[in-house]
Amino acid sequence: MITGNQDYDADDELAGLSDGLQRLARHLDDQHYPGLAWPASAPRHARPLAWWVAAPLAAVAVAAVIAALLVYHGRSPQSPTARAGGRTETARPSPRSPANRAPGEKTTPRTAIPPVVLVEDAESYSFIDTTAGTPMVSFATKDSCSPLCVVPVMPESVSQAAEGEKLDEYQEPPAAEGRGGGINSGP
């Protein structure tokens, strides 16, 4: 405060008043403001500048961590059993995956096998029908064009056919059975 009271005795105009004014000035000096004149001197609610700087940075950092966790778990999903067993199931690339392919290696597109295949040899036709669950092979001689035998292709027969045994031993069933059943046989 601007105190340091005047030198009252040095001023002739103060004659007779200097003592009273000095005592009144000292009396005023003893007075104090009753309380706090400014609310800012109480606990303040305003946030400091550092808070406004640190808060966005922290928010960005938390968002980055969350995004990183989401990306990480999105790339390597774990089955419930694997998580329960504590094992980590990693995706293993197949040997034919592009990752394991030689740099110059060309990929050949797969050709779909038609459901019915006609195989012609010198004396007969062979129909391989794969529409059903089990492949069926029908044989017909070229002169009759009637299916003489329909043989399901079993694993054993396939292996035998591969050896050329079963087909070579094929003989026409006897006509005496009279079962007909040919596609051209009438009633």
Partner: peptide, 13 residues
């Protein structure tokens, strides 16, 4: 706020 604390008594007197 600090300024107010420093001058409040002087202004009051």
């Amino acid at each position: 706020g600090l300024l107010a604390l420093a001058v409040q008594d002087g202004l009051f007197r």
